Deep mutational scan, measured.
Amino acid sequence: SQHQEELPPPPLPPGWEEKVDNLGRTYYVNHNNRTTQWHRPSLMDVSSE
Rank of each mutant, 00 (worst) to 15 (best):
M44N: 12
N30V: 00
R25F: 05
R25T: 12
Y27F: 05
D21F: 00
V20T: 09
Y27P: 00
L43N: 13
W16M: 02
R34M: 06
E6L: 05
P10A: 09
L23C: 13
R25W: 03
W16I: 02
Q4H: 13
Q4Y: 14
V20Q: 13
S47D: 12
P41D: 01
D21I: 00
L7G: 07
G15R: 06
P13D: 06
H3K: 06
P10V: 13
P9K: 10
L43D: 12
E49P: 15
G24S: 07
T26Q: 06
E17R: 04
L43F: 10
E17T: 08
E17M: 08
Q37C: 11
P11Y: 05
G24Q: 07
V20C: 10
Q37K: 01
P41E: 01
Y28Q: 01
E49M: 03
P11F: 03
V29M: 10
P9E: 04
S42A: 10
R25E: 14
E17Q: 10
W38F: 11
S1G: 02
D21A: 03
E49I: 02
G15M: 11
S1H: 03
Q2I: 11
V46Q: 08
D45K: 13
S47L: 05
E17N: 02
H39E: 12
N22S: 14
N32G: 11
W38S: 15
M44T: 12
T36W: 01
P11R: 14
P10F: 04
Q37D: 05
E6S: 08
N30M: 03
P13F: 02
H39M: 15
E5T: 15
P9N: 12
R40L: 06
P14G: 10
V29H: 06
W16C: 06
T35E: 09
H39Q: 12
P9M: 15
S48D: 03
P11E: 09
T35F: 12
H39L: 10
S1P: 01
L7K: 14
W16N: 00
D21R: 00
Q2H: 11
G15K: 09
S42R: 12
S1E: 02
T26I: 11
V29L: 10
N30E: 03
V20K: 10
N33K: 08
H31D: 12
T36Y: 03
V20H: 13
P13M: 12
R25H: 11
P13R: 09
P41R: 00
Q37I: 04
L7A: 07
T26H: 04
P8T: 15
W16V: 05
H31A: 10
N22F: 02
E49V: 00
P14M: 13
N30P: 03
N22H: 10
P8R: 08
V46A: 13
L23N: 12
L43T: 12
E18G: 05
S47K: 07
H31I: 13
E6W: 02
E5G: 00
V46I: 12
K19T: 04
T36I: 02
H3G: 03
S48Q: 15
S42C: 05
L12V: 15
L43A: 13
K19H: 07
N32K: 15
E49S: 03
Y28S: 01
T35C: 12
N33I: 13
Y27D: 01
E17Y: 04
Y27V: 04
P9R: 13
G15W: 04
R25G: 07
T35Y: 15
L43E: 07
E6Y: 15
K19F: 02
D21C: 08
N33E: 07
Q2R: 01
H39C: 11
P9F: 05
R40D: 02
Y27G: 01
P41I: 00
S1A: 03
Q2D: 09
K19S: 04
P8W: 04
S1V: 02
S1D: 00
T35H: 12
E6H: 06
L7R: 12
S42I: 11
V20F: 11
T35Q: 06
H3P: 05
S42Q: 14
V29E: 10
E18K: 14
Q2M: 08
Y28H: 01
Q4G: 00
S48W: 03
P14Y: 11
N30I: 01
Q2P: 02
P8Q: 13
P10H: 11
T26A: 08
G24T: 03
Y27H: 06
Q37H: 00
K19D: 02
E18Y: 05
N33P: 08
L23A: 15
E17L: 05
H3T: 05
R25D: 14
Y27C: 03
E6P: 03
E18P: 05
R25P: 00
L12G: 02
N33G: 15
N22Y: 14
T35L: 11
L23T: 13
M44I: 08
P8N: 14
P14T: 12
L7Y: 09
H39A: 14
L43W: 04
Y27R: 05
P9Q: 13
R40G: 01
P13Y: 03
W38K: 11
S1M: 15
T26C: 08
H3N: 09
N32L: 07
R25S: 13
Q4F: 14
W38M: 13
K19V: 03
E49N: 13
P10Y: 11
D21P: 00
P41C: 00
R40V: 06
T36N: 06
Q4I: 06
V46E: 13
T26P: 13
R34A: 13
T36S: 07
E18L: 05
N33A: 13
P14V: 12
T36R: 05
R34C: 09
P9G: 10
M44Q: 10
Q37V: 06
E6K: 12
E17H: 01
E18F: 03
L7M: 03
Y28I: 01
T36K: 08
V46C: 07
V20A: 13
N32P: 07
R25C: 14
D45G: 14
E6F: 04
W16R: 02
R34S: 12
P41L: 00
S47P: 12
V46N: 12
S42D: 12
G15H: 07
H31P: 10
E17I: 09
Q37P: 00
S48K: 05
N32S: 12
N22I: 09
Q4P: 06
V29S: 04
N32M: 10
P11D: 12
E5Q: 15
D45S: 11
G15V: 05
P13T: 06
D45T: 14
S1C: 03
P9S: 07
T35D: 04
R34D: 11
P9Y: 04
V46G: 14
D45N: 14
D45C: 04
Q4N: 13
S1N: 02
E17C: 09
T35V: 15
G15T: 06
P9W: 02
G15C: 07
L12W: 13
N30A: 03
N33D: 08
K19A: 07
N33V: 08
P13K: 03
V46K: 09
L12P: 00
R34P: 05
D21W: 00
V20E: 11
E6C: 07
